[in-house]
Design a protein around this nucleic acid. Sequence first.
DNA 1: TTGTTTCGACGAAGGTCTTCGTATAGCATT
DNA 2: AATGCTATACGAAGACCTTCGTCGAAACAA
Lengths: 128, 128
Amino acid sequence: MSPLLPRPTNAELAILRVLWEEGSSTVRQVQEALGRSQPIGYTTALKLLQIMTEKGLVVRDEAQRAHLYRPRLSPDETQGQLVSDLMERAFGGSASKLVLRALSSKPASPDELSEVRKLLDELAGEKS
Amino acid sequence: MSPLLPRPTNAELAILRVLWEEGSSTVRQVQEALGRSQPIGYTTALKLLQIMTEKGLVVRDEAQRAHLYRPRLSPDETQGQLVSDLMERAFGGSASKLVLRALSSKPASPDELSEVRKLLDELAGEKS
DNA sequence: TTGTTTCGACGAAGGTCTTCGTATAGCATT
DNA sequence: AATGCTATACGAAGACCTTCGTCGAAACAA
């Protein structure tokens, strides 16, 4: 059975975002993608990916000399885990409090708002 | 000129929640409130409150022998900071993605849903 | 073949977080 | 005054996070 994965740290999350965006990547590719916003040493990226492999956050393919890394969980799964975690720790488990705070803290576009409204309708219809 | 406060850590957030709930409290009161869910040493609580005082997360009133601590920021301010932070780090700054994830990851009650809908209406009306 | 580049492994430094033991001072009761 | 309880201060340990330097091996080029 899948042994619960640890919550990714800051630097680990940045790497996951690269892998979600780019797909399976080498250390070099991850380092360069990250470096576009903030320079990072090659061995730093390597070490992080090694640790993430130990933790099970990513899977390593050693078929080629330059190993390939891919995320074990999807963005949705990871984001859901992070949101649930913050919900528990900071909002006493209340989804609505978190949502209200998120919508107030940053103005969303009308398109985004209608997306939210759509989901809201679906959820309201489900209470069979 | 409020000097930006650091993001509270896990243990610090647990303490803030006690202080928001109970108001100004002594170390002993905080320790006992926290201990109801998870036992914690007295000096551990003390040390955390001392560090939080250094960071400016709480304010210490030394008028009595047993010092009183109170939060510097309101729940809303702190929660907003935490949500914005997660929004940036894990959702690329998209409020709607975070909201959708929050609503899907935990079923909210009809009351909560209508609260969200109300805010949604307000926000939609604002686009003058 | 010999030198150069690129790779992964490893260890360690410096920082933060959380916990706790010990020391010390104030205060009350005897 | 002496004892005991409760408070704060301080230091340090152990875990984790992030970064980087060094090493040896593999691939490649001259």
